[in-house]
């Protein structure tokens, strides 16, 4: 369980994150959603000590994270940020091995190699484990980084937009792996995600943010509501139930000649 108590971050005059208090349940997938600039990534950075907050406390199972030593924390929480460009000659396997650093400080034993192999299998990276990462596509690289956080084997895993650069197939694959981690290993997963349908289909809980504040936080069915989402994103959103999942259909209903003619033409063509 992670408790955020009155977290704020101020850049100049602007409060990027304003007095956020929210609890993150253990053993669940929690998604942070909201428009660009809502402060989701900044909040995630503060929760994982990458960034110092201006006020407020983050309590990890009752303990203030700024008071625990960083190397001890690295065995409890893992964070993967969204931009990862490395200009290093490093192979997939070597990068994933870094996940073991908090435990081994660089000296790997047999058990570590086993965990690394397992992470490679988990993310289906066997075919190119010896390739250099600058030879991989954006999607493959993203999977390598996620494998590294899996090798870190922490109870809490924070991912900042893990579906960036990924096509539908790999997005679904990653979300299924995250669910598997929760089910099989009782991990707690916290993600920042832009696609609200992915959030709706794969999360247990959702925290919706806007302008640096939490609008609502709760079970996903309580958050994926027409009125709430329309307020957050300031656009028309319809929610349909398809195969038992709440799916948001959010193609703007405002009248706009250039777009509407196009849509109407297509409707006529189909008829």
């Amino acid at each position: 369980m992670i408790d955020l108590k009155g977290i704020s971050k101020i850049y100049g005059q602007k409060k990027v994150v304003n007095d956020v208090s929210v609890s993150i349940a253990k053993g669940k997938v929690t998604s942070f959603i909201g428009p660009n600039g809502a402060g989701k990534s900044t909040l995630l950075s503060m929760v994982t000590r990458l960034l110092d907050q201006d006020s407020g406390d983050v309590l990890l199972e009752g303990e203030n994270i700024l008071q625990s030593p960083s190397d001890k924390l690295a065995k409890k929480i893992a964070i993967l940020k969204q931009s990862n460009n490395l200009d290093l000659k490093i192979t997939v396997r070597e990068l994933i091995s870094f996940g073991r650093f908090p435990y081994t400080k660089g000296r790997l034993n047999d058990k570590d190699h086993e965990i690394i192999n397992e992470a490679i299998r988990y993310m289906e990276l066997e075919d190119f484990e010896d390739r250099y990462i600058d030879e991989l596509s954006g999607g493959q690289r993203q999977r390598v980084y996620i494998a590294m956080t899996i090798a870190q084997d922490t109870e809490y895993i924070f991912l900042d937009e893990p579906l960036n650069n990924l096509d539908m197939k790999h997005s679904v694959q990653i979300m299924q792996i995250l669910r598997r981690l929760v089910r099989e290993r009782n991990k707690t997963i916290i993600i920042v995600i832009h696609d609200i349908n992915f959030a709706s289909c794969y999360s247990d809980n959702i925290v919706a943010m806007k302008d640096g504040e939490v609008v609502i936080s709760g079970k996903k069915d309580d958050v994926i509501q027409k009125q709430i989402l329309e307020d957050i994103y300031e656009m028309d959103i319809n929610i349909e139930c398809i195969y038992g999942q709440q799916i948001c259909v959010y193609f703007d209903e405002h009248k706009d000649a250039s777009v509407d003619d196009f849509i109407e033409d297509q409707v006529h063509l189909r008829v």
């Binding site: 990458l50 960083s70 924390l73 690295a74 870094f98 650093f101 908090p102 400080k105 660089g106 000296r107």
Partner: peptide, 20 residues
């Protein structure tokens, strides 16, 4: 010298992996 390897990954990764 191992922590130099980690620092080469950049600040975010290094902090995540427990380097002060």
């Amino acid at each position: 010298f191992h922590s130099l390897d980690v620092i080469a990954l950049g600040r975010d990764h290094a902090v995540n992996l427990g380097v002060n």
